[in-house]
Computed example of a mutant assay.
Amino acid sequence: MAITLVILDKDPSYSEYLTHYFRRYYNSIFHIVSSTTLVAMNIYLQNNDCIFLIHESYREDWSNEDAEVFWLCEEKNNGERFLYKYQKVDRFIHKILETSQREVDNLSLLKGLKQNIIGIYSPIGGIGKTTIATALTGLIAQHENVLYLNLEPFPSNAFLMNEGNKYNFSDLLLFASRASEDINMLIEKVVNRYETLELYYFNPYNRYEDLLDTDAGTWYRLMLALCHKYDKIILDFGSHEDKQVLTVFNLCHVLVVLVCHEPFAKMKVEKWYNYQQKMSRDLNICWVANKIDQREESQEPSSEYVLELAYNESYLRFNNFEELLRSSLLDKLIPLYLYLEGGESVD
């Protein structure tokens, strides 16, 4: 049953924004009501399932001590019942549910947080998935904090590896499977940060079987915690699918699928896509073409692709992550980044 959330802020446009956000991403969890005055809120006071989000300026006039209230603050406040208005909405939703001890399943919450998760995939091997995933992560890190997670059977990204951290992603999967563990504390132990950027990553797992042995409930719990912690999560998938990989596929807001115009590669992509449709998988696919044939440079771009890259062997020969960050590839990925931010292709 949905929880009734009653919102009252002194800025009507902020109330409207919150209402729209909750209805778009959390409609299955919350029933949203936007109120204009304290008097108008009285009708909801008899409902024990109501949670009130009220601007802090109304505190002196609020007299009902039994109601479950969270105060919307203009300045940061660490109090249990105070919510900083200008933090990510997803984070204060987490605080509301945690503080009020409301039972909501992790999958329902993840459906609202999916806009944070971007998958990079192709059924074609060697097309540059990891290079583009890493470069996109570096680009995003210049604007917001981002987590890169390599889910290939044999992780190939040696740039993002911290030899000084004894923990890796296998450890985190094991920790996450124990429901009694403080998962946020465990993430802090395992995660690494890349120097000056807001770019975070885990050392690769010991064995691919560690990923395959992880059940769906553990994935939901882990991904929910990561979504609350990072603005964006980039998932770098291998070119094949296993049952647990499909579980994670379905958590992606967007699945960026790389294709090329070589006939056999195109056939492989078509078969993969037809299979997804046959299995009725609801994947939000963003097509990116990596052109192997340089002669195709002069052709008009196809409307089905958000981005068409001119394949260049030098993209695959970086000696370190600094070289990748300084390369022209990041500039070429800006249209993709803008698309992922706004959902519209950019010419």
Rank of each mutant, 00 (worst) to 15 (best):
Ser63Gly: 11
Tyr273Ala: 12
Glu323Cys: 11
Phe237Lys: 01
Tyr230Trp: 09
Leu45Asp: 12
Lys291Cys: 07
Ile117Ala: 02
Ala135Ile: 02
Tyr315Glu: 09
Gln101Lys: 14
Ile32Asn: 04
Val259Phe: 10
Glu270Ser: 13
Ser170Glu: 08
Ile285Ala: 06
Asp171Gly: 04
Met161Thr: 13
Asp66Asn: 14
Ser122Gln: 07
Thr19Gly: 07
Thr131Ala: 10
Ile233Pro: 02
Asn312Leu: 02
Leu97Arg: 05
Asn274Ala: 09
Asp242Trp: 08
Asp210Ser: 03
Trp71Ala: 07
Leu53Met: 01
Cys227Ile: 02
Gln299Lys: 13
Lys166Ile: 12
His143Gln: 15
Asp331His: 13
Leu110Lys: 03
Ala289Thr: 10
Lys229Leu: 03
Leu109Ile: 08
Ser13Gln: 10
Pro335Leu: 08
Gly125Pro: 06
Leu197Met: 13
Val191Gly: 07
Asp293Thr: 00
Ser345Cys: 08
Ser177Leu: 00
Ala216Ser: 13
Pro301Ile: 01
Gly342Pro: 02
Asp49Met: 09
Leu53Ile: 02
Val191Gln: 11
Asp242Ile: 05
Gln244Val: 06
Leu151Lys: 11
His253Ser: 12
Ile120Ala: 01
Val254Asp: 15
Tyr200Ala: 06
Glu262Pro: 04
Pro12Asn: 11
Glu152Gln: 12
Glu209Ile: 10
Val256Gln: 06
Ile51Asn: 03
Asn165Cys: 10
Ile93Arg: 07
Leu174Asp: 09
Thr19Leu: 08
Asn42Tyr: 10
Trp287Asn: 09
Leu173Gly: 10
Ile7Gly: 10
Thr214Asp: 05
Asn106Asp: 12
Leu97Lys: 04
Phe154Ser: 12
Gln142Arg: 13
Lys243Met: 09
Glu98Thr: 10
Lys95Gln: 08
Ser298Lys: 11
Gly342Leu: 00
Trp287Lys: 12
Lys332Asp: 10
Gly164Pro: 01
Leu18Cys: 05
Gln115Glu: 10
Tyr14Pro: 11
Cys73Gln: 12
Ala225His: 04
Ile120Asn: 05
Leu8His: 01
